[in-house]
Every structure is written in structure tokens, then in C-alpha cells.
Write a protein that binds this DNA or RNA. Structure first.
Lengths: 342, 342
DNA sequence: GCGTGCGATGTTATCGATATCATAATTCGG
DNA sequence: CCGAATTATGATATCGATAACATCGCACGC
């Protein structure tokens, strides 16, 4: 459909590397003064600062943060670990967090842990080798090895998107089991008596599913099907999931999907199979992804304020970095958004 | 719907910071030997290596890459700049690239430039301050300031997802204009005579749209509507786009959307408005996102092998870092995947 | 008119690792 | 068995910035 082309590489000019002493020499000041112009401009007279800035521009000086970091023992870098960016789930918190930390002078290094257990261990070691000034972790349940590493490293840590009795440091999340239970109550209030759940193979999705099922059983009602899907789960996983459980469905069943992708897949497959929604199959997703809102008809989901999580995480982490005592745990609310699928 | 809770923070233990000299002392060797065990194990006898490894484990030593980087003048870090992770567009290349560079011993620092022009400038400066060993840029058209910075920095650069006559260093991408033209030909071959395009406000989406329109005009055929959307564009943008142009549509129109999100939105809105597809409105998206495949019915799109771009970018960049001469330009093919919407 | 204090700048030591060169231990062919 | 090549390890200097302390000059108050 199109060609593959290969051209030769261009040549490059001579190697140059401007350092702080070069700038200092040109501006006729000590290197320390250049450093002050860049880091604590208030402590330099406006006159010299101008001379130094001129020299910086003239030479195209770009400070070396590696050297600066070694000397000051501050990397001005934050590492953020999320399971994946292939799902819209973590976009909001990560983007907000990154933007706010950026304003505060920190770069955020994003790392993907995947959903394979143990993938996190190597990653955390590798990341700590860069001496981040802070850490953002997705999830609050980590291996003993990681806990030990983090404790030794003395790095401020904020855990998001989860809850735990004793967070490593600061936690900003919500209670997944309670959320599942709330979805159960929502369905029950709608008169449902038969339920199903499709959950990704991921600890937090599992917690939502467990909370859902537990509450239903508390009410003495029936869970007709429960199925575990890939993580992160795709639309196709949701479709396949529905095909797998279709034989078990009651004439009127309420389905909880662990993400909006799953719920959307289930809805598509139901429509294809001639199962009406919400009549025969009520569906609730999770995440309030755009697809839940903008598809036709839009479907019911649970919204968590991802931007708020990112913002509070940034605030808490900055407070922690600056040595302030901060609350150990911030649990945020969630909200069921009823739409046409229930 | 749920509560907000705040608990006090936990206390932390004493501060420790193990360094290479501590490990060396415990193992009874010189620091340099510890360094060799970690970086060039072949050059150390198995016996001493074992002793050193034992000491490392016992002390929980995590090497300081900041110090190592200053000394060796290699950061073992690659910076990757993409416009956004809110769209599935760049997932495949980025994930593949990150995984491969990771295997080669490099960490990838992901940075988001957004679609605002000029956002890239500050970002590149900030990133160069960390002295990355290589750079991955999305897009091949940069400001003069950036070009100068990159040239001075002498960093290997690979540009992806675009084409340009004279790439900064290495380029791995495809020709967006040609892609748009191919979609035009595809529609024309299907007997279409009236066309519309919805394109995101982003240089590469614009190139696809322009290529599409140009080819249609070459054939003397009619473009009934042309509209620019937000970048990155959402399903809702696609829906709104279709509403905006619906009055201009011919009884049988072929629509090219700059991404599958746009195409999906247009299809949803068309269905809602009672416009049949492909009968009255044929639609082709771009990206082969999951939604194009897994929705019902699936719709036509153009696929680019994102994983291949990521892989080749990693290979080329590694070759560049290791001083090899590499091709300046690799253009990859694309493929139109006909489905039920055309 | 002179000490005091403060703002502006400079000097020196250091951050924690690795490049490079030097040296000790070992192997091996003839 | 011996000297040269090879392997394993150590000593020293250095990467480029900043923390901490020192110094200088000037304004200001009494």
C-alpha cells in the first residue's frame, strides 16, 4: 500500500559542551554566581544577573542537572509508576499530577509496571537508582521487598487509586470494595434480583467485584455469573466475557463490568445477540471514560475524580518533600452516573 | 456517595544511605571493583563478584546513577516526547520502544508536549538538562530554536510518526499526505464522487486531510465539507463534526476522519440522525484502534504498524548511540483495512 | 565618624561514581 | 622454568555543579 525508503544519514558538526565555568568566565563572575542566577535569582543583583543571562544566551548554555543533582542531592525528578497507559483509566490523575509537579519545578518520569506481579520490584530498584525526590505509586499493596527498599530510600511516597490501612507514606485513593457494594445497592434499589460481574485480573478490579458480590449475597440475592478477564481489559474482552456467561443469564440480569471497556463490549455483544438493554440486561461500567458518555445510547458507570486524585497527590507529595506533616490517607468519593443502560 | 477520610501519617526510621565505598569496605575490595561487578561483570573473578554481591545484598545497596552518570557522562536515559497519551495513537510505538530500550539498559522518560505550538521548546530545554543519551521525538517539524539546541547537544535523535525531507538525525515514520491520498483512491475506486473530511488541529492530521482533498480535486471530484476539530479529538468531537457538516452532505458521501475516535463519533451521530452507513455515508478512520475493530459493526480504517515504528526507532537509536552509521529515513507502509462502513 | 549589619559575590570542599592508568597475579608456549 | 601476554584488582583524578563558609563594600544609626 506504500513504500519503504532508506536514505543516508546527515553529517554532524563539531562537539561542544558549554559548562557553568564557561558562562562564568564570559560574564566575568564566579561559577557560583551563575548557579545563583539560575536557582536563587533573588540573591543576585539585577545588573550581574543580566550579564549572566546574556552570557547564557550567547553560549547556549544548558545546565547539567546530573551534576547539579549530585551536588545538591536533589534530582528534581519524581517517578510515577502506573500499570498501563493503554487504558484511559490513569490518564487524568497522571496528567494532572505531571502538570502540577512541573509547575513546582519537578520532572515526572513515567514508568509502566504492567499487571504482572513482580514486575514492580525490578522497576522500583531501577528507579531508586536515579534518586527521585518523590514517588507516585499506583496501588497500595506492594511486596515486602519493595516496602523495605522504600523505607531505606527515605523517599516521600504517595500511593494512589487504592486504599490500605497502613499506607507507605501518603495515600490518595478510594475504596474499591465499597464502590462495588454501592453498585450492588444501586442495582438492588432498581429492583434487580439476579446479577453478574466481569472483572479484570487486577487487584483493584477484583476488589470492586468482590465488594459487589458480597453485598448481593448479604441481601440473599443471586449472582448468576462471575468471570475474570485480562488486564487491562479491552472491548473484545467484554464481548467475549458476555458470550461466556450468556447461557447463565437470568431473564433480567444486572451486570457490573470492571471498566467501561468491559461494559461497552458487553453491551455490543448483547445487542448483537438480541438481548435488550436495560430490559433484559442492565449494565454498569467503571471509570466514566468518554465512551460511556458519547456512545449511543450512553451507559451507566461509576465516576471517580481522577483529576482530583492527581491534584491532591501532587499537593501531598510536595508537602512531604518540603518536610511538612501530611495526612496519611485521603479517601475520595465516587459517584454512580445513571444513564440509559440501567 | 462515599466519605472523605484523613488519618495521621506514619513515622519513619533513621536515615541511611549506603554508597559504593560501604559495599567495598564490607567486601574487602576497592570501590572500583564493586563498580565493575555492576557494570562489567566479565572483568571480575567469579569469587570476588560473589563476595561483592553478598555485600550489596546485605547492605541493600542501590547504586546512584546520578553520580555514575556524571562520571561516565552517560545517563542511560532516553527521553521520549509525545503529544499525548490520552489517545491510543502513540501507545504501541511508545510501549514497544520503552520495552526494547529497557532491555538495552536504558530508562525511557516519557514527556507530554501537548498540541500547543511552543510547548515543545521549553520541554526540550528542560529535558536536555538531564543529558539524555538519546531522544525520541514525535513529529519531524520543529522550531529553529529546537533544531539549534539539538544540534549543539549532540544527542542522537529519532523522529517518529512523520516524514520530512531532512530529519534531524534518524526518522521512522510514514507519509501522511500519501496516506490521505490512498484513502481518496480507495473511496474513488468504490465509485464515490462526493467527499468530506474531519481533521484534528494537529500538523499530521492536517497532512492526511490535505493529501485526501488534493487527490480528490486531482480527479475533478467534489469535496462537500472540510472541518477542523480539536486535538486530540474525541468521540464527541466526531459527533459534533458530523452535525456541523450534515447539511452539506450529498446523498452519498465518503467521509475521512483523522482518527478512529472521530470516525466512531461520526458513525454514531449518523446512526442517530438516521443516515445509513455505508449506504448514505461511507466512513474511514485512522489508527486501527480497538474501537474500529470491536464495535458493531466494525468500521474501515487505516492501519500503521505502531509496534514496528517503536521497534525500528529503538534499533536505530541504539545504533546511533553506539556510533554506527544508520539510515537517515525509514518510511513504513500503511494499510487500509476495509470493514463494514465502506 | 565609626561600628554594625546586610546584601552581593567569591573560595573551597564535596557529592558518589567511573575512566584511566598502574600494578600484582596468573597463564602458557617453547 | 622463564619472560611475555593476559587477567584481576587497585589508586588517582575527574565529571559539573552546589553547600557552606568567607569576604567585601556600602548604608545606616547613634
Amino acid at each position: 500500500m506504500s513504500k519503504t525508503t532508506i536514505n543516508p544519514p546527515p553529517n554532524r558538526g563539531p562537539l561542544v559542551s558549554v559548562k557553568i565555568t564557561d558562562v562564568a568566565a564570559l560574564a566575568g563572575v564566579a561559577p557560583m554566581t551563575v548557579s545563583r542566577v539560575l536557582n536563587t535569582p533573588d540573591r543576585v543583583s539585577e545588573l550581574t544577573a543580566a550579564r549572566v543571562r546574556a552570557a547564557i544566551d550567547q553560549l547556549g548554555y544548558v545546565p547539567n542537572l546530573i551534576a547539579g543533582g549530585l551536588s545538591s542531592r536533589r534530582s528534581r525528578m519524581i517517578a510515577a509508576i502506573v500499570p498501563t497507559i493503554a487504558s484511559p483509566m490513569f490518564n487524568e490523575p497522571v496528567q494532572t499530577f505531571t502538570a502540577l509537579m512541573g509547575e513546582a519545578g519537578y520532572h515526572v518520569m513515567l514508568a509502566l509496571s504492567g499487571y504482572t506481579p513482580g514486575g514492580e520490584d525490578r522497576l522500583v530498584r531501577a528507579i531508586l537508582a536515579r534518586r527521585p525526590d518523590g514517588l507516585l505509586l499506583t496501588g497500595a499493596h506492594h511486596s515486602a521487598a519493595i516496602r523495605a527498599l522504600l523505607a531505606d530510600a527515605r523517599v516521600p511516597v504517595v500511593e494512589i487509586w487504592d486504599t490500605a490501612e497502613h499506607p507507605t507514606d501518603v495515600l490518595v485513593g478510594f475504596d474499591h470494595a465499597e464502590l462495588g457494594a454501592a453498585v450492588a445497592e444501586f442495582f438492588i434499589a432498581g429492583g434487580h434480583t439476579h446479577f453478574a460481574v466481569l472483572s479484570a485480573r487486577d487487584p483493584r478490579a477484583a476488589a470492586r467485584g468482590t465488594g459487589f458480590v458480597a453485598r448481593i449475597r448479604q441481601h440473599g440475592l443471586t449472582v448468576v455469573a462471575e468471570r475474570v478477564l485480562n488486564a487491562p481489559s479491552s472491548i473484545e474482552d467484554g464481548r467475549q466475557g458476555l458470550r461466556d456467561i450468556v447461557a447463565s443469564l437470568a431473564p433480567r440480569t444486572a451486570l457490573f463490568g470492571s471498566s467501561d471497556m468491559v461494559a461497552f463490549g458487553a453491551l455490543i455483544e448483547a445487542r448483537k445477540l438480541g438481548i435488550s438493554s436495560p430490559g433484559q440486561l442492565a449494565v454498569c461500567g467503571f471509570g466514566d471514560f468518554e465512551i460511556s458518555r458519547s456512545t449511543e445510547p450512553p451507559f451507566t458507570t461509576v465516576r471517580v475524580d481522577g483529576a482530583a486524585i492527581g491534584r491532591i497527590a501532587a499537593e501531598q507529595l510536595l508537602a512531604r518533600i518540603n518536610g511538612a506533616a501530611t495526612p496519611g490517607r485521603v479517601l475520595l468519593p465516587f459517584e454512580i452516573i445513571p444513564r440509559s443502560s440501567t
